[in-house]
Amino acid sequence: MKSIIKNLNKVFESRIRLGVMSILLVNDRVDFNTLKKLLNVTDGNLASHINALQNKKYIKVKKQFLNKKPNTSYAVSELGKKAFNDHLNALEKIIKKGVDF
């Protein structure tokens, strides 16, 4: 059992980080406010989770000005795609093996 758990990525343990990754996987680019609305979280909360993902280089940040207002958008990196996929595969294995617990 320990070997299965080992494949779960610690970085994705929070629901919000899981949410950010799943949204970014199906969209080319998503900005901060859209993420906030979809996940229903506060600014500070989301920012700290995004920071954690960014430090791991799982997501890429793009800062620009839209109509003279700063706009920050995010995209998933190749590394992040692979890490998230591995994590999902591990989750799937655990659920399949679950019956034996």
Binding site: S22, I23, V30, L38, L91
Partner: peptide, 13 residues
């Protein structure tokens, strides 16, 4: 978690 992921993917895309 998995069903949350699925729903977020659909709602956001």
């Amino acid at each position: 978690n998995l069903s949350e992921i699925r729903s977020l993917m659909e709602r956001s895309s």
